[in-house]
């Protein structure tokens, strides 16, 4: 079986995978990083979003072998101990999550947005979230969370 190596949340990891192994499967099944979720099979819900070399990507729609050598950040890699990343903190502060299932992907996507567009308007935030589906919140408080985090991330 092919071997894949990458950096995940700052730590070098490697493992044997089948060619068909998706990045999300490698993260969840082999590394037991189960914070990254799978909510659909058509690459639309965004529960699986992680950062690949700093850019948000859907880990359900890439092979583990495709990211050989890359730096991956997952939801588990954001907080510093018990101190949350400003985006995580803003979601907590604004009730930007309910069941929590879409939340990891939502947070990872939102961080990429604020990095690229620190002063995103409400409309721009809503448009950016096209690839992240939430069934619980109606998005109202997610948008509010991202707006607050953008301010706290120096946007």
């Amino acid at each position: 079986m092919p071997t894949v190596s990458m950096t995940v949340n700052g730590k070098p990891v490697s493992g044997e995978v089948e060619a068909r192994t998706l990045l999300v499967q490698f993260l969840r099944d082999q590394l037991r990083l189960t914070g990254t979720h799978v909510g659909c099979d058509t690459s639309q819900c965004g529960a699986c979003v992680v950062h690949v070399d700093g850019e948000s990507a859907k880990s359900c729609t890439m092979l583990a072998l495709q990211v050989d050598g890359a730096a991956i950040t997952t939801i588990e890699g954001l907080a510093n101990g018990e101190t949350l990343h400003p985006m995580q903190e803003a979601f907590r502060n604004n009730h930007g999550l309910q069941c929590g299932f879409c939340t990891p992907g939502m947070v990872m996507s939102a961080i990429d947005l604020v990095k690229k567009n620190p002063k995103a308007s409400e409309t721009e935030i809503r448009e950016w979230l096209e690839g992240n589906i939430c069934r619980c919140t109606g998005y109202h408080n997610i948008v509010k969370s991202i707006q607050e985090a953008a301010g706290n991330m120096g946007g």
Binding site: T34, T36, V38, R92, L97, G100, P104
Partner: peptide, 19 residues
């Protein structure tokens, strides 16, 4: 009150069935 459960959900430490 801010939610007690959010810390685990926001840090990827929720415990869903498939986990």
């Amino acid at each position: 009150v801010k939610r007690v459960e959010d810390q685990r959900f926001l840090t990827g430490r929720g415990n869903y069935t498939d986990d």
